Computed example of a mutant assay.
Amino acid sequence: MSSSGLQLLGFFLSLVGLSAVVAATFMVEWKQRQQGSKHHLYEGLWTRCSGNEIITCEPHDSLLDLPAEVQATRAVMLLSIFLSTVALLLSTVGMKCTRFMDGKAESKSTTAMVGGIMFMVSGLLAIAITSWYVTVIVQSFQVTHHLQSSEFGKAVFVSWAGGLLLMAGGSFLSCRRCSRSQSSSSESVSSNHLLSTTNPKSNYV
């Protein structure tokens, strides 16, 4: 696969990963608990929901009243989204299929590499904070009574998937070896073409 194809694949994976991280950040099913057979309680980073057949949601009252894991997860997930957004802009400028910075191949590859590294960092942040959030929930589940404890919900898996996609896409975008090999091969072809055009002239007297 050519370097342009790898960049497009990395850009697509990173875009899907960013969408997943954004969706996970605003999902309400980070923590869930069931009371009785039908009453469900859900708690997200921004809202909490409860109900039987009809679910009603309300935002968190105060930032200071939130548990530490919710505050930290909210901050790190927003940081991951911010870094991914900046990386998306840099990758768009640095990709070979775009017309930005034409005539500056080295600068374009460097810009794409920086964008890929930022994608990898944002994905790592999302995976790390989500894993820590799950660890806190599991520890509280083991300490408290099972009827009063909470379990982690679907948003955790969406966040993990988004972080993995960001890291995979960033690794493709930050690969410069492919672009260097392609540029070196094109330079060798052009040099061979010049030699083939100049050598016949040396046979004439």
Results as ranks from 00 to 15, higher is better:
residue 1 M to D: 09
residue 11 F to S: 07
residue 11 F to C: 04
residue 14 S to T: 03
residue 14 S to V: 02
residue 15 L to C: 10
residue 16 V to I: 14
residue 16 V to A: 13
residue 17 G to Y: 10
residue 18 L to I: 10
residue 20 A to M: 11
residue 21 V to S: 09
residue 21 V to K: 05
residue 23 A to K: 07
residue 25 T to Q: 08
residue 26 F to G: 02
residue 30 W to G: 00
residue 30 W to C: 02
residue 31 K to W: 12
residue 31 K to M: 06
residue 31 K to E: 15
residue 35 Q to K: 11
residue 35 Q to M: 06
residue 36 G to L: 05
residue 37 S to I: 04
residue 39 H to Q: 07
residue 42 Y to S: 07
residue 44 G to R: 02
residue 45 L to R: 02
residue 48 R to K: 13
residue 53 E to I: 07
residue 55 I to P: 01
residue 56 T to I: 01
residue 56 T to L: 05
residue 59 P to I: 02
residue 60 H to W: 15
residue 62 S to I: 00
residue 64 L to Y: 13
residue 65 D to R: 08
residue 67 P to Q: 06
residue 69 E to V: 04
residue 70 V to R: 02
residue 71 Q to R: 15
residue 71 Q to C: 02
residue 72 A to K: 14
residue 74 R to T: 00
residue 77 M to V: 01
residue 80 S to G: 13
residue 82 F to Q: 03
residue 83 L to M: 12
residue 85 T to E: 10
residue 87 A to C: 07
residue 88 L to E: 02
residue 88 L to D: 01
residue 89 L to V: 15
residue 89 L to K: 04
residue 90 L to T: 07
residue 91 S to N: 12
residue 91 S to T: 15
residue 92 T to M: 10
residue 93 V to G: 03
residue 94 G to P: 02
residue 98 T to R: 06
residue 102 D to W: 00
residue 102 D to P: 07
residue 107 S to E: 13
residue 110 T to L: 09
residue 110 T to G: 00
residue 111 T to A: 13
residue 113 M to G: 03
residue 126 A to D: 06
residue 128 A to V: 08
residue 129 I to S: 08
residue 132 W to C: 01
residue 135 T to K: 14
residue 136 V to S: 02
residue 138 V to G: 02
residue 138 V to R: 14
residue 139 Q to N: 15
residue 139 Q to A: 07
residue 142 Q to A: 04
residue 148 Q to D: 08
residue 150 S to K: 10
residue 151 E to H: 15
residue 151 E to R: 12
residue 158 V to I: 15
residue 161 A to C: 10
residue 166 L to P: 02
residue 166 L to G: 09
residue 167 M to Q: 04
residue 167 M to K: 01
residue 168 A to Q: 09
residue 173 L to M: 15
residue 174 S to C: 15
residue 176 R to W: 08
residue 178 C to K: 13
residue 181 S to H: 13
residue 181 S to W: 08
residue 191 S to I: 09
residue 193 H to E: 10
residue 193 H to T: 04
residue 194 L to M: 11
residue 195 L to R: 13
residue 201 K to S: 09
residue 204 Y to G: 01
